[in-house]
Design a binder for these strands. Structure first.
Length: 424
RNA sequence: GGAGAGGUAGCGAAGCGGCCGUAACGCGCUCGACUCGAAAUCGAGUUGUCCCAGUGAUGGGGCACGUGGGUUCAAAUCCCACCCUCUCCGCCA
Protein backbone atom coordinates (compact mmCIF):
# COMPACT_ATOMS: atom_id res chain seq x y z
CA UNK A 1 0.00 0.00 0.00
CA UNK A 2 1.14 3.45 -0.82
CA UNK A 3 1.75 6.00 1.95
CA UNK A 4 -1.44 8.00 2.60
CA UNK A 5 0.64 11.01 3.68
CA UNK A 6 2.48 10.97 0.37
CA UNK A 7 -0.78 11.07 -1.54
CA UNK A 8 -2.05 13.93 0.59
CA UNK A 9 1.15 15.97 0.39
CA UNK A 10 2.34 15.20 -3.14
CA UNK A 11 -0.68 14.17 -5.19
CA UNK A 12 1.01 15.33 -8.41
CA UNK A 13 3.89 12.90 -7.80
CA UNK A 14 1.46 9.99 -7.56
CA UNK A 15 -0.47 11.29 -10.54
CA UNK A 16 2.65 11.18 -12.71
CA UNK A 17 3.53 7.68 -11.47
CA UNK A 18 0.04 6.44 -12.25
CA UNK A 19 0.20 7.96 -15.71
CA UNK A 20 3.52 6.20 -16.33
CA UNK A 21 1.92 2.93 -15.33
CA UNK A 22 -1.13 3.64 -17.52
CA UNK A 23 -3.42 3.33 -14.52
CA UNK A 24 -6.97 4.63 -14.80
CA UNK A 25 -7.02 5.77 -11.18
CA UNK A 26 -7.70 9.47 -10.67
CA UNK A 27 -5.90 11.19 -7.80
CA UNK A 28 -8.44 14.03 -7.65
CA UNK A 29 -11.18 11.48 -6.99
CA UNK A 30 -9.17 10.27 -4.07
CA UNK A 31 -8.50 13.71 -2.64
CA UNK A 32 -12.24 14.35 -2.62
CA UNK A 33 -12.92 11.06 -0.82
CA UNK A 34 -10.23 11.81 1.73
CA UNK A 35 -11.44 15.37 2.36
CA UNK A 36 -14.93 14.01 2.95
CA UNK A 37 -13.60 11.41 5.37
CA UNK A 38 -11.70 14.00 7.41
CA UNK A 39 -14.66 16.35 7.50
CA UNK A 40 -16.89 13.61 8.92
CA UNK A 41 -14.21 12.52 11.39
CA UNK A 42 -13.83 16.00 12.82
CA UNK A 43 -17.56 16.33 13.32
CA UNK A 44 -18.13 12.93 14.89
CA UNK A 45 -15.08 13.23 17.12
CA UNK A 46 -16.23 16.51 18.61
CA UNK A 47 -19.60 14.89 19.36
CA UNK A 48 -17.87 11.96 21.01
CA UNK A 49 -15.84 14.39 23.06
CA UNK A 50 -19.11 15.92 24.29
CA UNK A 51 -20.56 12.50 25.00
CA UNK A 52 -17.54 11.41 27.01
CA UNK A 53 -17.50 14.57 29.10
CA UNK A 54 -21.26 14.44 29.74
CA UNK A 55 -21.23 10.73 30.52
CA UNK A 56 -18.65 11.34 33.20
CA UNK A 57 -20.94 14.01 34.59
CA UNK A 58 -23.86 11.58 34.63
CA UNK A 59 -21.73 9.16 36.58
CA UNK A 60 -20.76 11.88 39.06
CA UNK A 61 -24.38 12.98 39.59
CA UNK A 62 -25.56 9.41 40.05
CA UNK A 63 -22.91 8.86 42.67
CA UNK A 64 -24.23 11.89 44.53
CA UNK A 65 -27.72 10.46 44.20
CA UNK A 66 -28.96 13.25 41.92
CA UNK A 67 -31.15 12.75 38.89
CA UNK A 68 -29.38 13.38 35.61
CA UNK A 69 -32.47 13.40 33.42
CA UNK A 70 -31.66 16.67 31.56
CA UNK A 71 -28.22 15.43 30.57
CA UNK A 72 -29.57 12.03 29.64
CA UNK A 73 -32.08 13.61 27.31
CA UNK A 74 -29.39 15.61 25.55
CA UNK A 75 -27.15 12.57 25.38
CA UNK A 76 -29.90 10.53 23.82
CA UNK A 77 -29.94 12.94 20.89
CA UNK A 78 -26.13 13.08 20.73
CA UNK A 79 -25.92 9.28 20.71
CA UNK A 80 -28.37 9.08 17.85
CA UNK A 81 -26.40 11.61 15.79
CA UNK A 82 -23.13 9.83 16.56
CA UNK A 83 -24.58 6.55 15.40
CA UNK A 84 -25.62 8.13 12.11
CA UNK A 85 -22.27 9.88 11.58
CA UNK A 86 -20.32 6.77 12.59
CA UNK A 87 -21.98 4.93 9.75
CA UNK A 88 -21.13 7.65 7.24
CA UNK A 89 -17.57 7.90 8.53
CA UNK A 90 -17.04 4.16 8.24
CA UNK A 91 -18.30 4.29 4.67
CA UNK A 92 -15.97 7.21 3.84
CA UNK A 93 -13.02 5.40 5.43
CA UNK A 94 -13.79 2.24 3.50
CA UNK A 95 -13.92 4.25 0.25
CA UNK A 96 -10.52 5.76 0.96
CA UNK A 97 -9.01 2.39 1.85
CA UNK A 98 -10.52 0.65 -1.15
CA UNK A 99 -8.96 3.25 -3.41
CA UNK A 100 -5.57 3.02 -1.70
CA UNK A 101 -5.56 -0.77 -1.93
CA UNK A 102 -5.87 -0.52 -5.70
CA UNK A 103 -2.98 1.90 -6.14
CA UNK A 104 0.16 0.18 -7.45
CA UNK A 105 3.60 0.81 -6.00
CA UNK A 106 5.54 3.87 -7.13
CA UNK A 107 8.21 2.95 -9.70
CA UNK A 108 11.78 3.64 -8.62
CA UNK A 109 13.48 6.61 -10.28
CA UNK A 110 15.83 4.21 -12.11
CA UNK A 111 12.94 2.44 -13.86
CA UNK A 112 12.65 3.38 -17.56
CA UNK A 113 9.38 5.04 -18.53
CA UNK A 114 7.63 3.02 -21.20
CA UNK A 115 4.31 1.87 -22.56
CA UNK A 116 4.58 -1.94 -22.51
CA UNK A 117 6.96 -4.90 -22.70
CA UNK A 118 8.40 -3.63 -26.00
CA UNK A 119 10.02 -0.77 -24.08
CA UNK A 120 11.79 -2.87 -21.46
CA UNK A 121 15.52 -2.27 -21.37
CA UNK A 122 18.11 -5.00 -21.78
CA UNK A 123 20.78 -5.03 -19.07
CA UNK A 124 23.08 -7.81 -20.23
CA UNK A 125 23.40 -11.10 -22.11
CA UNK A 126 25.24 -14.09 -20.73
CA UNK A 127 26.13 -17.28 -22.59
CA UNK A 128 26.17 -18.04 -26.31
CA UNK A 129 23.11 -19.61 -27.95
CA UNK A 130 24.17 -22.87 -29.64
CA UNK A 131 24.22 -23.30 -33.39
CA UNK A 132 21.90 -26.01 -34.63
CA UNK A 133 22.47 -27.81 -37.97
CA UNK A 134 18.79 -28.63 -38.19
CA UNK A 135 16.00 -26.57 -36.65
CA UNK A 136 15.69 -27.50 -32.94
CA UNK A 137 12.51 -29.17 -31.77
CA UNK A 138 10.08 -27.23 -29.63
CA UNK A 139 10.32 -28.42 -26.01
CA UNK A 140 6.75 -29.72 -25.71
CA UNK A 141 7.05 -32.00 -28.74
CA UNK A 142 10.47 -33.18 -27.62
CA UNK A 143 9.27 -33.90 -24.10
CA UNK A 144 6.40 -35.96 -25.49
CA UNK A 145 8.71 -37.78 -27.93
CA UNK A 146 11.06 -38.69 -25.07
CA UNK A 147 8.15 -40.05 -23.05
CA UNK A 148 8.41 -37.39 -20.34
CA UNK A 149 5.30 -35.29 -20.94
CA UNK A 150 1.73 -36.52 -21.33
CA UNK A 151 -0.72 -33.75 -22.15
CA UNK A 152 -3.57 -36.01 -23.20
CA UNK A 153 -3.80 -37.82 -19.89
CA UNK A 154 -3.42 -34.52 -18.03
CA UNK A 155 -6.38 -33.15 -19.98
CA UNK A 156 -8.38 -36.22 -19.07
CA UNK A 157 -7.43 -35.99 -15.40
CA UNK A 158 -8.11 -32.30 -15.13
CA UNK A 159 -8.28 -30.15 -18.25
CA UNK A 160 -6.19 -28.00 -20.53
CA UNK A 161 -2.99 -26.32 -19.34
CA UNK A 162 -1.95 -29.24 -17.16
CA UNK A 163 0.77 -31.78 -17.80
CA UNK A 164 1.62 -35.20 -16.42
CA UNK A 165 5.36 -35.64 -16.06
CA UNK A 166 6.61 -39.22 -16.34
CA UNK A 167 9.84 -41.11 -15.89
CA UNK A 168 12.89 -38.89 -16.42
CA UNK A 169 10.74 -35.71 -16.53
CA UNK A 170 9.22 -36.35 -13.12
CA UNK A 171 12.69 -37.16 -11.84
CA UNK A 172 14.20 -34.06 -13.45
CA UNK A 173 11.52 -31.89 -11.86
CA UNK A 174 12.49 -33.23 -8.43
CA UNK A 175 16.20 -32.94 -9.26
CA UNK A 176 15.75 -29.27 -10.15
CA UNK A 177 13.90 -28.57 -6.90
CA UNK A 178 16.70 -30.16 -4.89
CA UNK A 179 19.42 -28.49 -6.92
CA UNK A 180 17.87 -25.03 -6.53
CA UNK A 181 17.13 -25.43 -2.83
CA UNK A 182 20.59 -26.83 -2.09
CA UNK A 183 22.20 -23.94 -3.92
CA UNK A 184 20.19 -21.35 -1.98
CA UNK A 185 20.48 -22.94 1.43
CA UNK A 186 24.10 -24.16 1.25
CA UNK A 187 25.74 -21.26 -0.53
CA UNK A 188 23.48 -18.19 -0.37
CA UNK A 189 22.15 -18.15 3.17
CA UNK A 190 18.46 -18.75 2.54
CA UNK A 191 16.31 -20.36 5.23
CA UNK A 192 14.30 -23.20 3.70
CA UNK A 193 10.55 -23.11 4.33
CA UNK A 194 7.70 -25.45 3.57
CA UNK A 195 4.69 -23.14 3.81
CA UNK A 196 0.94 -23.73 3.38
CA UNK A 197 -0.09 -23.92 -0.26
CA UNK A 198 -3.38 -22.21 0.46
CA UNK A 199 -3.76 -18.95 2.33
CA UNK A 200 -6.53 -16.69 3.53
CA UNK A 201 -7.77 -13.41 2.13
CA UNK A 202 -5.68 -11.22 4.44
CA UNK A 203 -2.49 -12.96 3.33
CA UNK A 204 -3.35 -12.54 -0.35
CA UNK A 205 -4.07 -8.87 0.32
CA UNK A 206 -0.75 -8.41 2.11
CA UNK A 207 1.33 -9.18 -0.96
CA UNK A 208 -1.03 -7.39 -3.36
CA UNK A 209 -2.82 -10.26 -5.18
CA UNK A 210 -6.07 -9.03 -3.66
CA UNK A 211 -8.30 -7.15 -4.01
CA UNK A 212 -7.37 -6.34 -7.59
CA UNK A 213 -6.40 -9.68 -9.11
CA UNK A 214 -8.94 -12.12 -7.74
CA UNK A 215 -9.67 -13.53 -11.21
CA UNK A 216 -6.06 -14.77 -11.48
CA UNK A 217 -6.45 -16.99 -8.40
CA UNK A 218 -8.04 -20.33 -7.62
CA UNK A 219 -10.36 -20.01 -4.65
CA UNK A 220 -11.69 -22.75 -2.42
CA UNK A 221 -15.43 -23.15 -2.20
CA UNK A 222 -15.64 -24.20 1.46
CA UNK A 223 -13.45 -21.54 3.02
CA UNK A 224 -12.14 -18.07 2.27
CA UNK A 225 -8.87 -19.70 1.19
CA UNK A 226 -6.94 -19.34 -2.05
CA UNK A 227 -4.33 -21.56 -3.69
CA UNK A 228 -1.03 -19.70 -3.78
CA UNK A 229 0.06 -18.41 -7.21
CA UNK A 230 3.66 -18.24 -5.90
CA UNK A 231 5.47 -18.92 -2.63
CA UNK A 232 6.11 -15.18 -2.48
CA UNK A 233 2.69 -14.96 -0.82
CA UNK A 234 3.26 -17.19 2.24
CA UNK A 235 6.97 -16.32 2.52
CA UNK A 236 6.51 -12.55 2.51
CA UNK A 237 3.58 -12.85 4.90
CA UNK A 238 5.59 -15.05 7.28
CA UNK A 239 6.34 -11.91 9.26
CA UNK A 240 3.00 -10.16 8.75
CA UNK A 241 2.12 -8.08 11.79
CA UNK A 242 5.59 -8.52 13.26
CA UNK A 243 8.37 -6.12 14.14
CA UNK A 244 11.81 -7.54 13.39
CA UNK A 245 14.98 -6.34 15.00
CA UNK A 246 17.31 -4.32 12.77
CA UNK A 247 19.98 -6.96 13.35
CA UNK A 248 17.67 -9.56 11.75
CA UNK A 249 18.07 -7.79 8.39
CA UNK A 250 18.64 -8.80 5.73
CA UNK A 251 16.78 -12.08 6.13
CA UNK A 252 16.27 -14.53 3.28
CA UNK A 253 13.82 -17.38 2.82
CA UNK A 254 13.32 -19.87 0.04
CA UNK A 255 10.65 -22.46 -0.63
CA UNK A 256 9.73 -24.95 -3.31
CA UNK A 257 5.97 -25.03 -3.78
CA UNK A 258 3.39 -25.76 -6.40
CA UNK A 259 1.96 -22.55 -7.85
CA UNK A 260 -1.62 -22.26 -9.07
CA UNK A 261 -2.68 -19.66 -11.60
CA UNK A 262 -6.01 -19.42 -13.36
CA UNK A 263 -4.32 -17.64 -16.30
CA UNK A 264 -7.49 -15.65 -16.87
CA UNK A 265 -7.09 -13.44 -19.92
CA UNK A 266 -4.29 -15.48 -21.45
CA UNK A 267 -6.47 -17.64 -23.68
CA UNK A 268 -4.55 -18.62 -26.80
CA UNK A 269 -1.19 -17.52 -25.36
CA UNK A 270 1.59 -20.08 -25.06
CA UNK A 271 -0.75 -23.00 -25.66
CA UNK A 272 2.09 -25.22 -26.83
CA UNK A 273 4.47 -26.79 -24.35
CA UNK A 274 4.64 -26.20 -20.62
CA UNK A 275 5.35 -22.46 -20.54
CA UNK A 276 1.94 -21.47 -19.19
CA UNK A 277 0.27 -24.04 -16.92
CA UNK A 278 -2.43 -23.77 -14.26
CA UNK A 279 -0.07 -25.59 -11.92
CA UNK A 280 3.71 -25.55 -11.81
CA UNK A 281 6.49 -25.99 -9.28
CA UNK A 282 8.73 -23.10 -8.41
CA UNK A 283 11.50 -22.34 -5.97
CA UNK A 284 11.00 -18.82 -4.73
CA UNK A 285 13.39 -16.46 -2.94
CA UNK A 286 12.11 -13.80 -0.57
CA UNK A 287 14.23 -11.23 1.23
CA UNK A 288 13.47 -8.78 4.04
CA UNK A 289 15.74 -5.77 3.88
CA UNK A 290 16.56 -2.47 5.54
CA UNK A 291 15.15 0.37 3.39
CA UNK A 292 18.66 1.75 2.82
CA UNK A 293 19.86 -1.65 1.60
CA UNK A 294 17.00 -3.02 -0.47
CA UNK A 295 18.27 -2.09 -3.93
CA UNK A 296 21.60 -3.65 -3.07
CA UNK A 297 19.67 -6.76 -1.97
CA UNK A 298 17.82 -6.77 -5.28
CA UNK A 299 21.13 -7.01 -7.15
CA UNK A 300 22.26 -9.83 -4.85
CA UNK A 301 19.06 -11.80 -5.39
CA UNK A 302 19.17 -11.25 -9.15
CA UNK A 303 22.69 -12.69 -8.98
CA UNK A 304 21.33 -15.81 -7.29
CA UNK A 305 18.78 -16.38 -10.05
CA UNK A 306 21.36 -15.79 -12.79
CA UNK A 307 23.90 -18.05 -11.12
CA UNK A 308 21.52 -21.00 -11.39
CA UNK A 309 21.27 -20.53 -15.15
CA UNK A 310 25.05 -20.30 -15.41
CA UNK A 311 25.43 -23.54 -13.46
CA UNK A 312 22.95 -25.10 -15.89
CA UNK A 313 24.89 -23.61 -18.83
CA UNK A 314 21.78 -21.96 -20.25
CA UNK A 315 22.14 -18.68 -22.19
CA UNK A 316 20.08 -15.83 -20.78
CA UNK A 317 19.65 -12.10 -20.70
CA UNK A 318 18.48 -9.69 -18.02
CA UNK A 319 16.02 -6.88 -18.69
CA UNK A 320 14.68 -4.03 -16.57
CA UNK A 321 10.92 -3.77 -16.81
CA UNK A 322 9.67 -0.35 -17.87
CA UNK A 323 6.93 1.48 -15.95
CA UNK A 324 4.21 0.13 -18.22
CA UNK A 325 5.18 -3.52 -17.66
CA UNK A 326 5.92 -3.33 -13.93
CA UNK A 327 3.88 -5.54 -11.59
CA UNK A 328 1.43 -4.10 -9.10
CA UNK A 329 3.56 -4.40 -5.94
CA UNK A 330 6.98 -3.80 -7.46
CA UNK A 331 8.99 -0.57 -7.48
CA UNK A 332 11.59 -2.16 -9.71
CA UNK A 333 11.78 -5.52 -11.46
CA UNK A 334 14.47 -7.37 -13.37
CA UNK A 335 13.26 -10.19 -15.56
CA UNK A 336 15.70 -12.95 -16.38
CA UNK A 337 14.96 -14.45 -19.78
CA UNK A 338 16.36 -17.77 -20.93
CA UNK A 339 17.18 -18.52 -24.55
CA UNK A 340 14.62 -20.77 -26.27
CA UNK A 341 16.17 -22.01 -29.53
CA UNK A 342 12.97 -23.35 -31.11
CA UNK A 343 11.31 -19.96 -30.89
CA UNK A 344 14.61 -18.13 -31.39
CA UNK A 345 13.72 -15.85 -28.53
CA UNK A 346 14.38 -15.17 -24.86
CA UNK A 347 11.53 -16.18 -22.55
CA UNK A 348 10.95 -15.11 -18.95
CA UNK A 349 12.26 -17.63 -16.44
CA UNK A 350 12.72 -15.43 -13.38
CA UNK A 351 11.39 -12.15 -12.11
CA UNK A 352 13.22 -10.36 -9.29
CA UNK A 353 11.46 -7.42 -7.66
CA UNK A 354 12.01 -4.88 -4.96
CA UNK A 355 8.57 -4.11 -3.51
CA UNK A 356 10.05 -1.47 -1.17
CA UNK A 357 7.63 -0.79 1.71
CA UNK A 358 4.54 -1.46 -0.41
CA UNK A 359 3.84 -5.00 0.82
CA UNK A 360 5.28 -4.24 4.25
CA UNK A 361 2.61 -1.58 4.76
CA UNK A 362 -0.17 -3.88 3.64
CA UNK A 363 1.05 -6.80 5.72
CA UNK A 364 2.35 -4.54 8.51
CA UNK A 365 5.91 -5.86 8.61
CA UNK A 366 8.23 -3.51 10.44
CA UNK A 367 11.68 -3.40 11.93
CA UNK A 368 13.02 -1.62 14.98
CA UNK A 369 16.14 0.44 14.33
CA UNK A 370 18.79 0.75 17.04
CA UNK A 371 17.51 4.24 17.70
CA UNK A 372 14.10 5.62 16.80
CA UNK A 373 10.75 4.00 16.31
CA UNK A 374 9.72 0.95 14.34
CA UNK A 375 9.08 1.50 10.66
CA UNK A 376 8.27 -0.58 7.60
CA UNK A 377 11.02 -2.69 6.11
CA UNK A 378 11.42 -3.55 2.43
CA UNK A 379 10.42 -6.87 0.87
CA UNK A 380 11.88 -8.47 -2.22
CA UNK A 381 11.01 -11.59 -4.14
CA UNK A 382 12.44 -13.51 -7.04
CA UNK A 383 12.03 -16.83 -8.78
CA UNK A 384 14.94 -19.13 -8.34
CA UNK A 385 13.66 -20.93 -10.46
CA UNK A 386 10.47 -22.49 -11.80
CA UNK A 387 11.09 -26.15 -12.67
CA UNK A 388 8.80 -26.30 -15.69
CA UNK A 389 10.29 -23.45 -17.66
CA UNK A 390 13.77 -24.55 -16.64
CA UNK A 391 13.00 -28.02 -17.96
CA UNK A 392 11.65 -26.49 -21.17
CA UNK A 393 14.89 -24.54 -21.59
CA UNK A 394 17.00 -27.63 -20.93
CA UNK A 395 14.99 -29.60 -23.49
CA UNK A 396 15.42 -27.01 -26.20
CA UNK A 397 19.04 -26.05 -25.49
CA UNK A 398 20.44 -29.50 -24.72
CA UNK A 399 18.75 -31.59 -27.40
CA UNK A 400 20.98 -33.59 -29.75
CA UNK A 401 20.74 -34.40 -33.44
CA UNK A 402 19.73 -37.99 -32.66
CA UNK A 403 16.75 -36.86 -30.56
CA UNK A 404 18.42 -37.47 -27.20
CA UNK A 405 18.93 -35.00 -24.40
CA UNK A 406 22.32 -34.39 -22.74
CA UNK A 407 21.65 -33.04 -19.24
CA UNK A 408 23.67 -30.17 -17.75
CA UNK A 409 26.60 -31.48 -15.69
CA UNK A 410 25.36 -29.72 -12.56
CA UNK A 411 22.33 -31.99 -12.46
CA UNK A 412 24.00 -35.35 -12.89
CA UNK A 413 24.44 -36.11 -9.19
CA UNK A 414 20.81 -35.07 -8.69
CA UNK A 415 19.80 -37.55 -11.42
CA UNK A 416 21.64 -40.50 -9.86
CA UNK A 417 24.32 -40.27 -12.52
CA UNK A 418 22.02 -40.21 -15.54
CA UNK A 419 23.64 -37.99 -18.18
CA UNK A 420 21.62 -38.67 -21.30
CA UNK A 421 17.92 -39.14 -21.90
CA UNK A 422 17.49 -41.38 -24.96
CA UNK A 423 14.39 -41.80 -27.06
CA UNK A 424 12.72 -45.19 -26.53
C1' G B 1 -16.73 -32.71 14.34
C1' G B 2 -18.12 -32.79 20.06
C1' A B 3 -17.13 -30.95 25.31
C1' G B 4 -14.49 -27.55 28.36
C1' A B 5 -10.98 -23.39 29.29
C1' G B 6 -8.91 -19.11 27.43
C1' G B 7 -7.36 -14.57 24.03
C1' U B 8 -6.10 -7.43 28.13
C1' A B 9 0.80 -3.44 27.02
C1' G B 10 7.40 -6.74 25.02
C1' C B 11 6.00 -11.21 28.46
C1' G B 12 2.97 -13.09 32.69
C1' A B 13 -1.45 -11.43 34.90
C1' A B 14 -5.68 -8.44 37.67
C1' G B 15 -10.18 -6.06 36.47
C1' C B 16 -16.11 -8.50 34.90
C1' G B 17 -21.29 -1.65 33.36
C1' G B 18 -19.29 4.82 34.98
C1' C B 19 -14.04 5.85 40.37
C1' C B 20 -9.65 0.47 35.29
C1' G B 21 -6.66 1.82 29.01
C1' U B 22 -1.30 7.64 29.94
C1' A B 23 -4.58 -0.65 32.27
C1' A B 24 -3.31 -2.78 39.37
C1' C B 25 0.65 -6.30 40.45
C1' G B 26 5.08 -9.10 38.77
C1' C B 27 8.96 -9.72 34.99
C1' G B 28 11.66 -7.43 31.10
C1' C B 29 13.62 -2.93 28.85
C1' U B 30 15.54 2.50 29.11
C1' C B 31 17.45 6.47 32.07
C1' G B 32 19.06 8.16 36.86
C1' A B 33 20.83 7.55 42.17
C1' C B 34 24.08 4.50 45.19
C1' U B 35 29.17 1.97 43.66
C1' C B 36 36.12 2.07 41.88
C1' G B 37 32.89 -1.06 38.64
C1' A B 38 29.01 -4.69 38.90
C1' A B 39 25.07 -7.20 41.55
C1' A B 40 21.39 -5.98 44.94
C1' U B 41 18.46 -1.80 46.31
C1' C B 42 15.87 2.87 45.45
C1' G B 43 13.59 6.52 41.98
C1' A B 44 11.67 7.88 37.15
C1' G B 45 10.15 6.35 32.38
C1' U B 46 8.26 2.51 29.05
C1' U B 47 1.39 1.22 23.33
C1' G B 48 -0.15 2.27 18.74
C1' U B 49 -3.00 4.85 15.41
C1' C B 50 -6.17 8.67 13.38
C1' C B 51 -8.26 13.87 13.36
C1' C B 52 -7.50 19.17 14.52
C1' A B 53 -3.96 23.44 15.53
C1' G B 54 1.37 24.74 14.72
C1' U B 55 7.22 25.67 10.33
C1' G B 56 8.54 22.82 14.63
C1' A B 57 9.64 20.80 19.73
C1' U B 58 4.52 20.25 21.15
C1' G B 59 -0.70 20.83 22.53
C1' G B 60 -6.08 19.39 22.25
C1' G B 61 -9.27 15.41 20.90
C1' G B 62 -11.08 10.47 18.95
C1' C B 63 -10.31 5.21 18.67
C1' A B 64 -8.19 0.53 20.17
C1' C B 65 -8.92 -5.22 26.00
C1' G B 66 -8.82 -11.64 19.53
C1' U B 67 -12.25 -9.81 15.04
C1' G B 68 -17.02 -7.90 13.59
C1' G B 69 -21.90 -6.56 15.05
C1' G B 70 -25.68 -5.42 18.98
C1' U B 71 -27.80 -3.45 23.87
C1' U B 72 -26.84 1.29 26.80
C1' C B 73 -26.42 8.23 28.02
C1' A B 74 -21.91 5.05 29.03
C1' A B 75 -19.00 -1.70 27.38
C1' A B 76 -12.59 -4.92 28.74
C1' U B 77 -17.18 -5.85 31.65
C1' C B 78 -23.89 -7.71 29.14
C1' C B 79 -25.79 -10.21 24.26
C1' C B 80 -24.86 -12.46 19.12
C1' A B 81 -21.62 -14.27 15.23
C1' C B 82 -16.86 -15.52 13.68
C1' C B 83 -11.33 -16.40 14.23
C1' C B 84 -7.29 -18.34 16.99
C1' U B 85 -4.80 -21.04 21.22
C1' C B 86 -4.82 -24.92 25.05
C1' U B 87 -6.98 -29.67 27.39
C1' C B 88 -9.97 -34.01 26.60
C1' C B 89 -12.94 -37.11 23.11
C1' G B 90 -14.06 -38.71 18.04
C1' C B 91 -12.37 -39.14 12.92
C1' C B 92 -8.21 -39.23 9.69
C1' A B 93 -2.77 -39.33 6.02
Amino acid sequence: MIDLKLVQKQPELLGRALANRHSDLNVDDFLRLDARRRELLTEVESLKNRRNAASAEVAAQKRKGESASDLLMELGRVAERIKQLDGETAKAKADVEAWLMRVPNLPDASVPVGRDETENVEVCRVGEPRDFDTPPLEHGALGVALGGFDFERAARLTGSRFVVELNWAARLDRALVNFFLDQHTRHEGYIEVCPPYMVNRATMTGTGQLPKFEEDLFKLREADYYLIPTAEVPLTNLHAGETLDETDLPRAYCAATPCFRSEAGSAGKDTRGIIRMHQFTKVEMVRFAHPDDSYNQLEIMLGHACHLLELLELPYRVITLCTGDLGFSAAKTYDVEVWMPAQKTYREISSCSNCTDFQARRANIRFKPKTGKATWLHTLNGSGLPTGRTMAAILENCQQKDGSLVLPKALITYMDGVEIIEPK
